[in-house]
Amino acid sequence: MVLIGVVLIIVGFLLRFNPLVVVTVSALVTGLIGGLPIKELITQFGEAFTTNRYMSILIVTLPIVGLLERNGLQNQAAKLVSKIKAVTAGRIINIYLLIREIGAALGLNSIGGHPQTVRPLIAPMAEGAAEAKYGKLPQEERENIRAQAAAADNIGLFFGEDIFVAVGGILLMKGFFDQNHISADPILMALWGIPTAVCVFIIHSIRLYLFDKRLDRRLGQPKFLEAGQANETERKVER
C-alpha cells in the first residue's frame, strides 16, 4: 500500500506534471495511507521542510554571482580560454572533472558546485572555447555544452567524495555496520572506492572526448579554414 506514493511519483514525473505538485501530493498520500492524522501529517511535513533547509543553500551565492555576471564575468571567462589554442569544450570540462574529483577525494567538496562554479565559470569557459573554435554556436549545442559541464560537476563530486575518510557516506556505512556487529574500517572502505573512482573518470573522459568529436562533426571547423592556417592541406587529406 505504501508503494502508492512511489507509483504517484513515477507516474507524475513521466506525465511531466510540475514536480513540486507531484512530490507534495505523494508525500501527503503516503502519510495518509500510513495512518497519520491530517494535522499530525502536516506538522511532520513542516518539520521535515524546516530541517532540510540546508538543501537550499545555493541562495546565499546568488547575490554575488548575479553581481559578477552583470559586470561580464561570463564573458571574461570565455575570453580567457579562447586565447589558448589547444582548448576545446570537452577538454575544459574534462580538466574540471579531474579537479572536482581529486578535490572531493581530499575532502575539498566546496571547491565546485553549480551556482558558484559551473554557471559563472566552467560553462562559459567551455562555451567560449567552442565559440573560438567553431564561431557562433547554435542554441542546441550551447545547451549541450552546459549540460556536460553540470554533469561533470556531479560525477566528479560523487565518485571523489567517498575516497575521503571523514565524509558523510563513509561515516554512515561505518555506523551501520557497527550497529549490526560487523567490523568495518573507514580507511579500507575509502580505499576500496578508488577502483570505481578511477574507472568512472576514464569512462567519462572518453565520453567527453567523443563529445568533442561530435561537435567537430556537427559544427565543422570553419574558423580554422577561414584563417587559412598552414595545416589546411593536411585537413583536406584527412577528409
Binding site: V2, L3, G5, V6, I9, P19, L20, V23, T24, S26, A27, T30, G31, I33, G34, Q44, F45, A48, F49, T51, N52, R53, M55, S56
Partner: peptide
C-alpha cells in the same frame, strides 16, 4: 524549493516504511 521538498518526501517515505 524542489530539493528541500524532496528531502521532506524522503523523511515521510521512511516513516511510512517504503
Amino acid at each position: 524549493v524542489l530539493p528541500q521538498l524532496l528531502a521532506t518526501l524522503g523523511t515521510i517515505f521512511t516513516k511510512a516504511g517504503v
